[in-house]
Amino acid sequence: MPAFSPLSSYAAGSYASIVPATTAHASAGFISPIAGAHMSNVERVALATDLAAARALRAVAEPRPRQTCNTLLPQTSPVEVQVQRRTAMHLRSESDRVAFLNENRVSAVWMEMLDATRASGGCPTEVRPGQVATDIAHRMSCLGVGVGELRRPDRHSASGTAADVGSASVGASEFATIEALSLPSVHIREPGFEPGTMAALEYDLGWRALAPSWQAALPAIDEDVWASNPNTALFCAVGRAVLPHLATDERGELMDGICARIVSFHMHAGGL
């Protein structure tokens, strides 16, 4: 918009209070601060000169780029895989990177979950119910190994990059992988079961304790059936009962690796 030095003193506050609430009476109700000002002939000439020399510039609103893909793991190749700070392999192509992540899918989800629930300043992470599950599905799609990506007919294309995943289904659930980590509470949509809460910790510990009794007969969990009734009362009650009796070694560390992972995840999300 044009800027005129003689009018720079007219702030919006000088007439904002008399702008009508509706546009129906705008012509009668709006009073221009310029029209109400008393100007001499010299001021009028100066104003006319400024108006004649003014240039109307077209306003261009450029959209801000949104960081829709925010992952911990690299989204493009080449990538170095390091083990104990030593390079173990080079993933030089996209097919190599995607194949490696698919082979190590559980570890990839685990690392992205830790990043998605990272707390700051010792305060618990602030997430809404079910937000982490949605975030993880989006992250895996950004990495090119999401469940939606696996269903794409062109997923083996050599030209596929992280920029192409915008067309993929980011709503696909990673429930099967997260359940394999014994952290199904991440998918609970009820308030109070967010990562880092005691209810979520008890639920996952109860899930771990009861898993051997039904996994042999029910190796795969239907997410929709489970989501309709996650049975929070049962699993939380079992988890609450076993929590004080978790076996530890002489150093005080949990002996069961899965329980250790559950506890460490929720302590991490809780800011510890």
Rank of each mutant, 00 (worst) to 15 (best):
T248C: 04
D224R: 07
P78M: 01
A108G: 07
A12F: 15
I221K: 08
E62V: 15
P124Y: 04
G270D: 01
T23D: 14
R85N: 06
L246N: 11
S17H: 05
V81S: 03
I188S: 02
I262H: 07
Q82P: 06
W207F: 05
V45H: 15
F193Y: 11
G148P: 01
G252K: 00
C123Y: 15
L246A: 05
L201E: 08
T23P: 11
V45G: 14
F175R: 00
P74F: 06
V98R: 13
A137M: 04
A28Y: 08
P244G: 01
A28W: 03
R251E: 12
F175P: 03
A56K: 08
L183R: 02
T22G: 02
D164L: 06
E62W: 12
E190I: 05
M111K: 14
P78Q: 06
W226F: 02
L218I: 07
S27R: 12
Q67H: 08
R92S: 11
F175V: 06
L7R: 01
A168I: 10
Q67S: 13
A99L: 02
R152M: 04
T76A: 12
D164H: 07
A172G: 10
R97P: 01
Q131S: 10
L243T: 14
T177K: 08
T76K: 13
A220H: 15
R64C: 02
A237N: 02
R139H: 03
L47I: 09
L143W: 00
S167R: 05
E80F: 12
V225F: 01
A247R: 05
A200F: 00
R66I: 09
S185N: 09
G13L: 10
A24G: 11
F193D: 00
A162E: 11
E103G: 14
A162L: 08
G13S: 14
A53R: 07
D115A: 14
L101P: 01
V127C: 01
H138D: 13
